[in-house]
Write a protein that binds this DNA or RNA. Structure first.
Lengths: 253, 253
DNA sequence: ATAATAGTGTCTATGAGACAATATATT
DNA sequence: AATATATTGTCTCATAGACACTATTAT
């Protein structure tokens, strides 16, 4: 006990290391997350976040990008991806022991002692960009995040709390960063951008005040072709990463 | 390639799993972080964050609390602790191979193939709470975070970037949460709390406007004994976790 | 024609920032 | 007495929020 943590020889706790992707988009006017239906144990038939293990010489960011391409079939270029946080999920022993998964070289007791560390990444996908599953038989689906709370699909592992954390982070980030534009393909109009805020936050915003706020935020938007009253101006993203001062987020919801 | 990540049997990437603590406090009017001088390879003689491996049946939060007590010799009760993010640091092969550490049951090539996953936790310690090292020979020191950028100590692993992330997060959190009070022991005065903001942000705040803002923020502060003009009122923390609207942070620095 | 949307302008209420005045404790 | 600090009050300015008006496009 008197020994300090750092004095100890490096403690090689065995762990399986995975990256889980929380792909968010706006679909049918609602914030939505991409889920995959599992067809093997554990949690067979439940919905789960797409993810996978780390490659042998891969860091976390590289793995998240590889898995993103693997899942969506698309390059991630203009999208926003960031690490959310890590989760240690104890895989239920009976579930793991009964796994129908193939080539596991570990005995059951070793597997049950195994812990799983998932590093979650949050990725914003532009509206209308649908994933192209590599395996046609796979069941992909966008789920509105509001439908996950009650009477929704049964989620695997602790993915429900991962999604909740991602949604919280997403809604917060819209206030003080320019990531909302990551949900749109360029060029876009102020109305389209406003609907992103409205749908993600679940509020209604005044179009005139919104336009005044965003067009006066330095570096957020770059006008492409100028619009006279009645014609929507097209914008591309500017170089600013943050909005100062933040976009006020209505509290009443 | 056509296979989806989730189709794969669970990919047990071997990894050493550690928790690193970023203990922050305000000391001599500056934001400071607790570092430990390493006395064994790798990075012998460098300064590192206190940390340690996960116990066999421990989750991340439990490990961070255990290591906090182990490091500081104090219970963590009123303090603020939160997960920062995870880092995959490839331990340099030659450094690892030459490690003077004891009881490693792995061969050198196995060790060099080992990757290290560190989950960083950020903890706020009250002003004046000094850690009680368990081993007297150990070199603990508070370092002002501003002294780490240039001409500072040599930091082990990627701890410099972990600390930078924690400092950014800490400064941001002061804007929209009530965690600044975690740096103080109760009860405290508005002046003490203002100095926390000033020291962490490196700015000067107007005392009158600061008092008006914080005392009008619902649930942030609970007055203990009322003070007439000239006598400082003593406060304890209220139940509010967030400050709405956020405390404006001067930009000029 | 009607509705929906985009841009512009105006008014008001709120709150941040700056400053002054007073009261108390400390040296 | 002089200094530092805490509370209260006032003034100004920026801006969010609400609303009106006009122009254009879609149905």
């Amino acid at each position: 006990m008197g020994r300090l943590a750092d004095d100890e020889p490096d403690h090689f706790t065995p762990a399986s290391l995975r990256v889980e992707l929380v792909l968010l988009t706006v679909r049918d006017g609602r914030l939505a997350v991409l889920l995959v239906k599992r067809h093997s144990a554990p949690f067979q038939g439940c919905w789960a976040l797409p993810g996978g293990g780390l490659g042998d010489h891969e860091d976390l960011d590289a793995a998240s990008q590889r898995l993103l391409t693997l899942t969506t079939g698309l390059e991630h270029d203009p999208w926003h991806a960031e690490q959310l946080r890590s989760y240690v999920s104890a895989v239920p022993a009976q579930q793991t022991a009964g796994a129908a998964g193939s080539a596991s070289e570990r005995s059951d007791e070793q597997v049950s002692a195994q812990r799983s560390v998932s590093v979650a990444y949050m990725v914003f996908m532009p509206v209308g960009t649908d994933p192209a599953p590599g395996s046609a038989a796979e069941a992909f689906r966008w789920w509105a995040v509001d439908d996950l709370s009650d009477d929704g699909p049964v989620l695997a592992f602790d993915h429900a709390s991962i999604i909740a954390d991602a949604v919280d982070r997403c809604r917060s980030k819209l206030e003080y960063t320019t990531v909302a534009a990551s949900f749109l393909q360029e060029p876009f109009t102020l109305g389209e951008l406003r609907r992103i805020y409205e749908n993600v936050w679940g509020v209604k915003l005044h179009h005139s005040n919104f336009a005044r706020k965003l067009t006066s935020s330095p570096g957020y938007l770059v006008a492409e072709v100028d619009g006279s009253p009645g014609r929507a101006t097209l914008y591309r993203r500017g170089s600013a990463q943050f909005v100062m001062p933040p976009i006020p987020r209505p509290v009443g919801e």
